[in-house]
């Protein structure tokens, strides 16, 4: 069936089976491989994307459900010049990236939070990341990077 939506501010129309996930649609039909399949049951958050501004697990969204919506994947998160944005820079500065598989989801969970508030407490940052698992960093550095970004964006 034809699925039409906006991905990273670009309109797309994709002919795809009705029974695949949004994650498979993004990866296999649109070549957007930033979202990863970790658990495939909504527990790890590696497939996180924003759908109409809200964080969702793309492994739990049926591809045709995305029809008519706006999807933001990690490929759409960048500075105006195409380089890393401030949050991504801070992930590096604060040592928040190790193996990297959770990071696209972590950055999107961070962006979802920062869309809602630029004054999150550390507890609120942890709540925002509660559905995104990282087995390397112990989360501390990821929380630091998001906290620092919130502060910088407040001062802009």
């Amino acid at each position: 069936m034809l699925i039409q939506f906006t991905v990273n501010k670009k309109s797309v129309a994709v002919e795809a089976p009705a029974d695949i996930t949004l994650l498979d649609l993004l990866r296999d039909y649109l070549g957007l491989t930033g979202a990863k399949e970790g658990c495939a049951v909504g527990e790890c958050g590696a497939c996180s994307v924003l759908m109409d501004g809200r964080l969702v697990n793309s492994c739990l969204v049926l591809a045709p459900q995305a029809d008519g919506s706006e999807i933001l994947t990690i490929e759409g998160v960048h500075a105006p010049d195409g380089g890393l944005n401030d949050l991504q820079e801070n992930f590096i500065t604060y040592g928040a990236v190790q193996c990297g598989i959770c990071i696209p989801g972590m950055v999107l969970a961070g962006e979802a939070l920062l869309l809602e508030t630029l004054t999150p407490t550390r507890a609120e940052i942890r709540t925002a990341l509660a559905g995104n698992l990282c087995r390397c960093t112990g989360y501390q550095q990821i929380v630091d990077a998001i906290e620092a970004t919130a502060q910088q964006r407040r001062n802009q």
Partner: peptide
């Protein structure tokens, strides 16, 4: 329930 992404869906 779950985490933010589950609660959003």
């Amino acid at each position: 329930v779950g985490g933010p992404a589950i609660r959003n869906a």
